[in-house]
Structure formats: C-alpha cells, structure tokens
Design a protein around this nucleic acid. Structure first.
Lengths: 346, 346
DNA sequence: CCGGGGATGTGTATCGTTCTACGTATATCG
DNA sequence: CGATATACGTAGAACGATACACATCCCCGG
C-alpha cells in the first residue's frame, strides 16, 4: 500500500513537462522560454511562435510554486469577513470581472469575523507570495493594515482612510448615502426621521457607520430638523441581530415615523417586526435600508434601499490593486456615489 | 520611481529570515530545522526546543512557495460555483470549521457558473501545488473531474457518483429529500402535489435533481397518488429565474394545491408570485422549498423547507479530503439525511 | 573597414525548502 | 566485549522557475 511500490510499468512515470522540456522541444534555451512566458523584453516573434507552439503541443503549465520562489505568483488574495452578507457577493463579482481576463488568479479566504483569524489568513497570503491582497470590510485596525501594506500591495474596501499612503482604499460615499436617505424621506413629507445604527463605532478607521451618521445629521440640519435628529444605537457589532433593541424601538411611544437602517439585514428585521406587530409599512412606518441586496428586492420584502454599487467598488478595487502591483506608489482613495432604489417600504 | 533606486539607508534591507537564519541562530543544520518544521522522525526533544525558541525569537515563517516546490503547500482549493447561493455559505462554514485547526489553509475560487472558467480555476489550483481540492456543486462532468482526481486528491459535494473510485463524494440524500417533501404534504391531507424542477437534468453525474424527482415519484406511488404525480420542468439551469414558467403554472386552471420546489430560491419566487396574484398561502397553495436558507427563515417569507445540512456536508467533505491527502486511497461516498423544517408556507 | 549600439539569445547563480543518503554517537544484546 | 541496532544529525542534491550578466548578431554612420 506504500505509495511507491511497483513503479507502475504501464505508466512510464510520464516525466513531468517543465520549462526544460519545452526548451528542448523548441530548441531554445530555458531562459528564452522563461522570457516568452513572462513576455519579457528581447524575444523575436519567430522565437515566441516556436516556443508557444511547443508549449501547446506539450501542454506545459508553469509551476506556480517555483515561480513564486523568485518572481511573481500571479495570484491575488481576497479577504472576506463572512460569506453570508450578500453585499460581498456583489463586490466579489466586480473583482472577478477585472481579475479574470488579467492573467492573475483570485483566491479568497474567509475571516469569519475573527480578527486573529483575519491576521493569520493575510499572513498566509504573504507566505504564499501572493502578488497583492484585497481586504473587503476587514475588522482589522489601520495599524495592522499598514504593517501588511509594507510587505505586500494592499487595497481595502469598506474602510475609510483617506490619508493612508501605503495602501489604496475604495468606498461608497457613506456620508452622501446618509444624506440621500434623509433627503428621500423629507421629500415624502417626513419630519420624524431616525437612524438605526451600531452600538459602537467599528474601531479606528472603520468609520463607515460614523460617516453615514454624519451624513444623516448634516442632512437633518439642512432640512431644519436638527432638533428631531435621533440616532438609535442598538445594533451590536457582532453577528447578533440585535432584535431586542429593534423591538423596543418599535414598541416605544415615541416610535419614529421614518427609519433609516444601517444595512438591509436590519432593514429586513425591522420590516419583519413591523409586520408581526401590526405596524403598517410605509403608512405608519417608512423604512430604508442600505446595500440594495437581493433580499431587499424580493417583492415579499420590498425594501427601499441605498445602493452603494458593490460591483463598482469591486471593479475599482481590483484595478487599483493591479495598478499597485505594476508599480504605482502614490495612493488612490476612491469614493463611489450611492443612489436610492425606491420600493414599497418608503 | 524605479522600485530599486536608493536602497533605503534607514531600512537596512532587513535580510529576510529563512530556514538558514534559524539554523544559524539555533546552532544546528538546516535539515534539522526542516525536520522540526515538518515534525519528521529523528529529532530529540532538546533539539526541537532549541529550534522552536529560535523560530519564535526570529519570527520565522516558512516560505510556502519554496515548500511547494518539493513538499506540500498545506493549502486546499475550494471551488464554488457562485457566491449568491446562501446554501454555499453553510457548506463553506462547515469546511472552515474542520480546516481551520488542521494546519491547512483553505483558498476559494468562484466558477461563476462557467464550465471553462471552472476548469481553468482547478488547473490553477493544481499549478499552485495545492494539496487537495474540494468541488462544491460543480458544473463539470464526471470525466473531467476524474481527470483532475488523477492529479490531485479530490472531493466533490453536490454531485452523486457512488461508483467513482478516484474521488470521494458527499451529498444530501436527495432521494430521501424528495420523499420527505411528499410525506409532509400527504400528512397534511394534500393529494394534488406537484414538483417544480429543472428543464433539463444537470449533465452526467450531476443528478441531484433527478434523485429528488425519483424520491418524489416513489413517495407519490407509496401514497397511492401515482396518477396525480406531476413534475413541472420550467426552471432553466442558468442564472435565469424562470419566473415566466412559474407564473404560467400559478395562472393555469389546474394549478396544484401543493408545490415542492427544487430550491428555496424558487420557493421564494413562487411565494412572491402567489402573493402578487392574490393566491392564499398555504390555504390555496402550500409551498415547500429546499436548502433551508436564511431567506426562507425570514418571517416575511416564512417558507417551509427541506434542510440538507449544508454545514454537515462541509464538515464531512473536509474530513474526507484531509483523509485522502494523508494517504487513503479507497473512495468514500457519504449521504447525509435531510430533514423538514416546517414553517407557515406548508 | 571599424566601432558603437540596439535587438535577441544564452549560461548559470539563485530563491527557500524538502529529502535522500550517509555519518556518528549511544543503547542493546548474546 | 565486540557486534549490531537504533536514535539523532548533517551534507548536499534536487525542485522549477526567474533574472542578472554576458555573448552574438546585425545594421549603420563615419
């Protein structure tokens, strides 16, 4: 049963086809083949043609490990926090669209909302000599990100850090998103507009929710509603739904007439509870979510939402990463405009 | 701007710490360190201790590329078809649970329901010298899977192939699932029970839907309802929702009283349409989905569903893969029992 | 006819591990 | 006590690419 008894006489140990095989087959040096592979400078069309036909004939495929030892691995690492958030799917889709035809390969890992796991995963991406990493809404603090950015080209989504110089960021314009929400409500004649937010800001740099709150407050001020602005901080930052806090708000005598929710996940919760508690939506309570996920779009749910163009963010981030890998050093910090998708809940 | 002008006098090019550095620091040979790393045979406790402290002090991390060149890469490749299907999230979660503490790393890639992309991704996993691959509900045919299985330890989920010898499979017991659905309906007094299925079976080996249909038919027979069995094949295999076909069924005069749906995604569609068309659920139409996704659990949706234990499948598959990597050659084909989760729609 | 320089190839050291083969103590046994 | 295992280490050749330094070749102006 040992893997190495009887050298399989029928299968002549079909000696693996390496760069050397190709070189021999096409009658050129190993170095020349390598050049063709990397389409480096200094190869004639004739030689390139000869080599490529050899490659095809032999079915040669470069060994990534050997490659990574000296050169690039042509692999990008994508760090996700969790798979269940449908917003991520949009982002990843956008990323794939760019990465796919680029010759690079994207490999994803899931941090499972655990900071130490996130760190280990990024470390293993560095170990694997990946050419760059894309962090999507990581829990990590800026300090740690910076440390990694020193070692490997890095782009971050969902993490505002407009002054960072070592890595790029791509974000939805969350301040604008907060404004949009209020403006939409005001336009429908609402005045009693509250915002449902997180119990605590998400650590240094992860100020996505802060900015939405800022936008909300600014727009309330502009509408002359400063004194009626209310930010209800009841959503715990972990996986927990915080459903108790939401229920309390809906049951309270001063329940708001319009509620802007931190994310679709919670917008849906609110709608659920309203349904159960017999609160008419949108007549007694107007609801607005964030992310425009597929769940919000279900007719049964029918939740209005702010779309922050996850797919666009993915595309932009992937482009930024490839740019950085190809040598760009000066940071770029992109902000994509969100827009409102009106449905029945508001 | 070239990456290599001015060798950064402040940063003394902090020479990377390799296995050689560790060897020097601990005063042993490179080979000895390697042995410790792989905890191979022939190391005394004293030596091991000396080396490990050196490793910690220096913060040494083995280079995966160099490792993969001769030995293992300790990385597993996970192929997903698409991120949007929430069932996948369950599976991946299960996989992570096993892989995480095992010393291996999981890297995922998304096939985007494109066969040729799937193939390219698996190839690149082979190129990366990953130690094994786990294919989750791939579109690939058995022939192709077999070809890969010859090169790399392979486990497949969502692809019944009980006689395959080169790779392992893990599946929900889809036949049983089909039975369960019918039995649940019958128990509630239903007799007019139809099944909503795919327009075409999903290629050789991908007989998940076939088996559910078989289970459905068998249970109908057992209940003495053979003549009333109807399989409505209206769902196209691609991303398309097939909503037109579903609408036609609901509008038809012979609309069934109970509908067993191929997946939650379509169960939700049905419930949506029923809602829009003013069909009372479950009184006029009882609905049952498959997969027990989080969407089905939303009170607004409230869809009964067959749970096929995605998380359990992930766990089992990951274990099988690790087993195969560690040398097991004889195939295992696992079938996990599904169970009914009753909600308001049935 | 010479020499300079760009374009095209080649030779080979190198990357950081693993792994085979072998040496040297130390323990075991008749 | 000598022979023989056995445990522990070491040396150095792979592994399969990249990339640096150099060798040619060819063309052309002076």
């Amino acid at each position: 049963m040992s893997p190495k008894d009887s050298p399989a006489p029928t299968t002549p140990v079909t000696t693996r086809v390496t760069i050397r095989t190709v070189a021999q087959d096409s009658g050129v040096s190993v170095a020349a083949v390598s050049k063709v592979l990397r389409n480096a400078y200094g190869v004639s069309d004739a030689l390139r043609a000869r080599v490529t036909t050899s490659i095809e004939r032999l079915g040669y495929r470069p060994n990534v490990a050997a490659r990574g030892l000296r050169g690039q691995s042509f692999t990008l690492g994508i760090l996700l926090t969790e798979l269940t958030n449908p917003f991520l799917a949009q982002v990843v889709d956008g990323v794939a669209e760019v990465v796919d035809p680029s010759g690079y390969k994207a490999m994803m890992a899931v941090g499972r909302t655990d900071v130490s796991l996130e760190i280990r995963l990024i470390e293993s991406m560095v170990d694997a000599r990946m050419d760059g990493v894309l962090l999507i809404a990581p829990l990590l603090g800026s300090k740690v990100i910076e440390r990694f950015a020193r070692q490997i080209p890095t782009v971050v989504i969902g993490h505002h850090e407009p002054t960072a110089t070592l890595f790029d960021t791509v974000n939805g314009d969350d301040r604008r998103g907060g404004r949009l929400a209020v403006e939409a409500f005001v336009q429908h004649g609402h005045r009693d507009i509250a915002m449902l937010s997180l119990t605590q800001p998400l650590g240094e740099g992860r100020n996505v929710s802060d900015l939405r709150e800022e936008g909300y407050l600014a727009a309330m001020r502009d509408a002359g509603l400063s004194d009626r602005a209310r930010i209800l901080r009841v959503i715990p930052p972990n996986q927990d739904s915080g459903i108790g806090g939401i229920a309390a708000i809906l049951a309270a005598p001063d329940r708001p007439r319009a509620l802007f929710c931190w994310s679709d996940l919670h917008g849906v919760q609110v709608r659920n509870l309203a349904h159960r508690m017999g609160i008419a939506v949108p007549d007694e309570l107007a609801i607005l979510g964030y992310d425009n996920t597929s769940v919000a779009a279900l007719p049964l749910v029918d939740l209005s939402s702010i779309d922050q163009d996850g797919r666009g963010q993915g595309i932009a981030a992937a482009r930024a990463l490839l740019g950085r890998i190809e040598g760009r050093r000066d940071p770029t910090h992109l902000l994509l405009p969100p827009h409102l998708v009106a449905r029945g809940s508001a």
